[in-house]
Design a protein around this nucleic acid. Structure first.
Lengths: 114, 114
DNA sequence: TCCATATTTCCATAATTATCGAATCATCGA
DNA sequence: TCGATGATTCGATAATTATGGAAATATGGA
């Protein structure tokens, strides 16, 4: 992940409605949520939310699929993973930025799932 | 870390000159770098860089100390760590976002250094 | 085909953020 | 105290980003 891609991802998350939407989609998991559901949950008008979803999408953080009349959005963890890797690599060098989780003796294989 | 603090940190990093500056400071380590040195390395005029350093500072990502005529900036890893923790917690839920490092069998105690 | 629903695109406007020269402030050495 | 150096603040302007209603697009059902 290069720095301009990183900046796009960071900027995508650096906004109230977008961060809320992304968190929601992470919670929702594979099933995802429709644009309308997200807009309602976040409390933003449809057209505004659409704008924000486009930003997240453009950053590669979420995916879109049509399901009948609804557009279902879901989190795309690969970009998020790349972002985490970039930050760990470039912004935490040798210091204690990596949170102390995910380091259990035998974590079978939940990582690398997406 | 609450979401508005998170957003401030994300926004602080979501800018070319600031991300470059922060990476530089992470590399520089404890010793840090002067405002002038950062501005030159990043290729931004002093007053612009000063603006950006203020943003990073306000987000809690860097610290400032005066050393004679120079202001020396250095990375503050605690906020970065909090940010990583927030993202891991809220944006990677159960999925494979945590990079596969920091999980060596016996990593003595380099974490929690700062 | 026609209507209702779900969502986006368009557009104008508002708000925020970035840029950078000039002026100002702080510190040091002579 | 004066001049030089390092850095910030000020202020005006440019650029980007956010907002949200209205119009347009896509889909499905009757």
């Amino acid at each position: 992940m290069d720095s301009s891609t990183t900046i796009r991802a960071l900027a995508a998350l650096a906004q109230e409605h977008r961060l809320a939407a992304f968190r929601l989609l992470v919670q929702a998991g594979e099933a995802g949520l429709s644009a309308g559901a997200i807009a309602e949950a976040v409390g933003a008008p449809a057209s505004s939310m659409s704008f924000h979803l486009a930003q997240l999408s453009h950053a590669g953080l979420i995916r879109q699929k049509r399901q009948s009349r609804s557009l279902i959005y879901s989190a795309d963890y690969t970009t998020m993973g790349d972002l985490m890797a970039y930050l760990t690599e470039n912004c935490c060098s040798g210091q204690g930025c990596v949170p102390a989780l995910g380091c259990e003796p035998q974590n079978t294989d939940e990582r690398n799932a997406a």
